[in-house]
Design a protein around this nucleic acid. Structure first.
Lengths: 183, 183
DNA sequence: AGGCTAACGCAACGATGAGTGCGATAATTT
DNA sequence: AAATTATCGCACTCATCGTTGCGTTAGCCT
């Protein structure tokens, strides 16, 4: 009597999901926020609007899903052997990702869609930074606190991207790492 | 023959403007983003939708206007006599402001409304920080660079508010000031 | 106080987004 | 290979947003 709701993740469903996610990213990058509507997304994805309404329900949930899918696992945690090297490589990757206007547009739209939109964009990065620090700790090295690292690395990076509109250079990012490790 | 477009800022216009701004803040705080529509704002403000359409045009411009109005001049630059004191007081005020859920909701909606939405929320704070540093410089004290101050103070503050969802305590904010002045 | 005109309210229309019932398709299982 | 059923496409309806023309109200100036 188990009412197991079995899902069906292979084949067409996956294709539809990917196409819709791609359409969301493109539309978020293209026009103003009010053009990001479900019929528009469906048309661009080559899918019927009904499908999107049924699978996601609202623009907010659609954006949250697209954002978590986009911001999870597209940056690999490096392993250079030293904490400084790991952090510098990782910051460089994150900064490069944040320099893409399409990524920024998706982030802005996701933030605007609800209270946890911002978290969906950064949780993965938070965990990656924690993993880097944990590994150094396993190596036996002295590590900064995760909170301090978040404040001094992620904070400035995301602030510049969203609130200042400045591009983040690799050199500047390495300076942040140096400041963290010096303190 | 001067075609001076004379505006009429007093009396009713100002009342309407204030009521609409208030309605935007309330609606942004109340429901999801898709409920923040011009007819809804007009109804809550006790104003006819046509008025809002004509004066602001789109939800994006309306949000930008409301945000700049809300985030300008509601924090006074303190003058305690020392740089550390000024920064601590100011950070405390900003942190308190950012702890208000309504303020956060307005910020999120503004960020989601367009590419410069984020700037509209932070430009004033940027200038205030610059003013504090300039005053200390006039006093003859040694001052940090404005960029570094932004990275180490505004960055963590806004990152926590938007991307981490953590409340910012006054103690933690003072720690940021200490770290900046120590470096 | 009276005129001038910017700003607002009202009514109506077209366009489009949101939601629903039903049949068709294709992924998964036996 | 055949059956099962989750998922999708289609046609249709309802609600509401965006816009325009016109009359009215109420700031500002002489």
């Amino acid at each position: 009597m188990t009412e197991a709701v079995q899902t069906r993740p292979g084949g067409r469903s996956a294709r539809v999901r990917a196409a819709v996610h791609r359409a969301v990213e493109e539309l978020a990058a293209a026009g103003p926020a009010e053009t990001l509507t479900i019929p528009a997304v469906a048309a661009r994805a080559g899918v019927h609007p009904t499908t999107v309404y049924r699978r996601w329900g609202s623009v907010g949930q659609l954006l949250a899903d697209a954002a978590t899918s986009r911001f999870s696992g597209n940056v690999v945690v490096p392993d250079t052997g030293s904490l400084a090297g790991d952090l510098e490589r990782w910051m460089d990757d994150v900064a490069t990702d944040l320099a893409d206007p399409d990524v920024l547009a998706l982030m802005r739209a996701t933030i605007g869609s609800g209270p946890d939109g911002g978290c969906a964009c950064a949780v993965d990065r938070h965990e990656q930074l924690g993993a880097i620090i944990e590994r150094e700790q396993a190596r036996g090295g002295k590590v900064p606190e995760l909170e301090r690292a978040v404040d001094m690395l992620l904070g400035p990076l995301y602030y510049r991207a969203i609130f200042a509109g400045q591009p983040a250079s690799g050199e500047w990012a390495r300076g942040l790492v140096a400041a963290l490790l010096a303190g």
